[in-house]
């Protein structure tokens, strides 16, 4: 190979290495990009964040329609708490403001903290499940042996598609290491 070709080879190879490195960067960038894409298009199954109570006008409850809400909760590995909903199932009207209670107990002899992450099924109807106040917004810290009742206030948006008769709200309680 003469020197000119050799140099041209090196130049093109360097550019291709840069392209590969950029592609690796794209791999990491996909993490925020997916979230941005879902936020812009509304194509996701995540529950909406907090909404203010004023977002729904009083008296808009659709008394003719019932939706079953099922409640569940699990403490995840690493957080040995007893955790669950006080009632497992209730029927609500779309638009009606509802408050339900979960209980949690720290049976260990150490103070522990955790945060609950909600999820709503079916995912494609999740954005119609509006949480006004939730214990999941805050970190929860329990002293040894402490028991606590925690409330979730929510309403189901009247825009919930008619074919949805039931929604399930489930919490996974994750441990938070001290200091984080």
């Amino acid at each position: 190979m003469d020197a000119a070709i050799r140099q041209a080879n090196r130049r093109l190879a360097r550019r291709l290495v840069l392209a590969a490195v950029a592609a690796g960067g794209l791999g990491f960038a996909l993490v925020p990009l997916y979230d941005v894409f879902c936020a812009v298009t509304g194509l996701n199954g995540k529950t909406g964040g907090a909404v203010s109570a004023g977002a729904v006008a009083p008296g808009t409850a659709d008394a003719a329609r019932w939706v079953t809400v099922e409640l569940a909760g699990n403490a995840m590995p690493g957080l040995s708490w007893e955790f669950g909903a006080k009632r497992n199932r209730l029927r609500v009207h779309p638009g009606e403001m509802v408050t339900v209670a979960y209980y949690v107990k720290n049976p260990t002899d150490r103070p522990l903290s955790g945060r609950a992450v909600p999820s709503v099924s079916p995912g494609w109807a999740a954005r119609h499940f509006k949480k006004v106040d939730c214990f999941c917004f805050k970190r929860q810290q329990l002293a040894p042996g402490e028991t606590r009742e925690m409330a979730v206030t929510f309403f189901i948006s009247p825009e919930l598609p008619a074919e949805v008769r039931a929604l399930a709200l489930s919490y996974a309680f994750y441990p938070i290491e001290d200091g984080s």
Binding site: L16, A19, A20, A23, G24, G25, L26, G27, F28, L30
Partner: peptide, 13 residues
């Protein structure tokens, strides 16, 4: 060149 680095990225994560 365009997609194998994405595999490296995801297994790194």
């Amino acid at each position: 060149v365009l997609v194998l680095p994405v595999l490296s990225a995801v297994v790194t994560m």
